[in-house]
Structures are given as structure tokens and as C-alpha cells.
């Protein structure tokens, strides 16, 4: 993020002004100084945004896809002698062997989507550039404050229609955790990247949801149900010319409170 900000700053500086070279030099200095002086400020937000990724499970996963079987199981077989039961046939009894669970956090991995092609990346970048260059006069609008570029940003008027469009496509597939205790509190958040064709590029739980799901089976079930919904209802039909606005959705929140009225 910090990197992207730097990049966009530079491209702004390349704007249609005189003394381009001088300006560029100064801006370069400014950014260099900024990076040196405020490195922590740059890195901190980035840190908080990194989802801890369990390399081991990714490796497992990749292996599984590539080769075949998760090794067969039994580690320990709990053998209980059959309590002989008379009148009603209470069963002869059972030994259950928990087999090794090949258990992996599921949504960490980009699925069915190769890394973005050079062309896609180019598109992304162009989209970004377009956004940067369209408001040709940031000078006046800048007074209005940070959110001046139309159509960009979180939840403003220009993106509300996209959020609604996405919602209306996802909700059909979402089976909320209605029967769970305290179901209304089972709110789960995702970071979703969409491909230009509306398919899911990457879907992962936010760190908060990851932590909550690790400690609570209901939250885990809720997050898995929500993630199934995201996959099931793809591809999403959204305006292609505004891909930059819906390329990343974060948080994509599933909130059952309204459905649990009483």
C-alpha cells in the first residue's frame, strides 16, 4: 500500500505543470525523506493488513492438488469392548478412530486462477492511471478534502450501486447460520479480490475473522458457509469499465443480524 501510494504520488507529480523536472526532483526528495523519516508509518499499516499465512498448510494444499492422497489414517484406535446389552439392542459398541485430519484453512489460496497475467496487471495499472488523470485539476478540488476523486473510495455514492449489485448477487447463495446460538453475532469478514471477468480471484478471511473462527466452531461454520456463497454465486456481473472500483472488496461482510429480527 505504501508502495502504491508512492507510485501514485510520483505519477501525480508528472502532471501537466511547468518545471516538471524541478518538481520531480523535489518530490523525489520529499518522498525519500518521508520514507526515511517515517518508515514506521509506512510499514505499520501494511503489517496490519497482511493476513498471516500458514505456509505449511499452503504447502500441504499444493501437494494435495499435485499428487494424490492424504495418507490414510489411523493413528489411534480407541477400542472399547462391546458392552453386551440385552433387552433392546443397544449396539454392540464401537470404536472410533479419529483419523488424521488433513485440515487446512481453506480460503487462503487463490483458486482456479493463475496469477494475474501481464495484461491484467497492465489493465489494473491503466485503470489506476485513468483514475489519477481524469480529474485533471486536483488543485481546486483538493480543498474539498481527501475524497475528491469521483467514483473512488469506500462506500460513496459512486460505488453504492456496485456494492448493491454485488450484494444482490451474493445473497441468493448465502445460507445464514440461523440455528446457531447467538447467531446474530456470527458476523464474518472477508477480503475478496475479483478478476475482471467477475470470478473470484482470491478470498480470505480477515485477520479478525480468522482468529474468531479458530476459537469457535460456529464462527468457523459461518465463515465457511459465507465463503461457499461467494464461490457459488460467481461470476459476478458488474460494470466492466469500473473494474477498478470492484477489484477488491474489503471487508466483504456477512452480517446475519437483520435476519434474526426477534
Amino acid at each position: 500500500m505504501a508502495f502504491a501510494t508512492g507510485r501514485t504520488g510520483v505519477s501525480t507529480a508528472r502532471g501537466p505543470r511547468s518545471g516538471v523536472a524541478l518538481s520531480a526532483v523535489f518530490h523525489g526528495l520529499v518522498f525519500a525523506a518521508a520514507f526515511l523519516t517515517f518508515q514506521r508509518n509506512f510499514t505499520a499499516p501494511e503489517d496490519t493488513h497482511i493476513v498471516p499465512v500458514d505456509l505449511v498448510t499452503i504447502a500441504d494444499k499444493t501437494d494435495i492438488a499435485a499428487q494424490a492422497p492424504p495418507a490414510p489414517e489411523p493413528e489411534k484406535v480407541i477400542d472399547k469392548p462391546p458392552p453386551a446389552l440385552e433387552p433392546p439392542p443397544l449396539p454392540e459398541m464401537i470404536e472410533v478412530a479419529p483419523a488424521p485430519e488433513v485440515e487446512m484453512p481453506k480460503f487462503d489460496i487463490a483458486k482456479e486462477k493463475p496469477p494475474p497475467t501481464r495484461r491484467e496487471m497492465q489493465q489494473d495499472f491503466n485503470a489506476l492511471l485513468n483514475k489519477l488523470t481524469t480529474p485533471d485539476k486536483p488543485v481546486q478540488t483538493a480543498k474539498a478534502g481527501p475524497r475528491v476523486i469521483p467514483g473512488i473510495g469506500t462506500g460513496n455514492l459512486m460505488t453504492a450501486d456496485i456494492a448493491d449489485a454485488l450484494k444482490s448477487q451474493i445473497y441468493r447463495c448465502w445460507s445464514p447460520p440461523t440455528g446457531a446460538p447467538d447467531a446474530r453475532d456470527l458476523i464474518v469478514d472477508f477480503d475478496l479480490s475479483l478478476n475482471p471477468d467477475g470470478t473470484v480471484g482470491r478470498l480470505q478471511m480477515t485477520p479478525g475473522t480468522t482468529a474468531a473462527a479458530a476459537g469457535n466452531g460456529y464462527t468457523r461454520a459461518a465463515s465457511e458457509a459465507a465463503s461457499r456463497a461467494v464461490y457459488q454465486c460467481q461470476p459476478y456481473r458488474l460494470p466492466a469499465d469500473r473494474y477498478a472500483q470492484w477489484r477488491e472488496i474489503n471487508p466483504l461482510r456477512f452480517d446475519p443480524r437483520q435476519m434474526m429480527g426477534q
Binding site: 469506500t154 462506500g155 460505488t159 456496485i162 456494492a163 454485488l166 450484494k167 451474493i170 445473497y171 448465502w174 477480503d191 459465507a226 456463497a229 472500483q245 470492484w246 477488491e248 472488496i249 474489503n250 471487508p251 466483504l252 461482510r253 456477512f254 452480517d255 446475519p256 443480524r257 437483520q258 435476519m259
Partner: peptide
């Protein structure tokens, strides 16, 4: 990123 709340 765009924020989306799925509530239904």
C-alpha cells in the same frame, strides 16, 4: 477497497 455488507 469497496466495502460490502451482505445482510440478507
Amino acid at each position: 477497497a469497496l466495502q460490502v455488507d451482505v445482510t440478507q
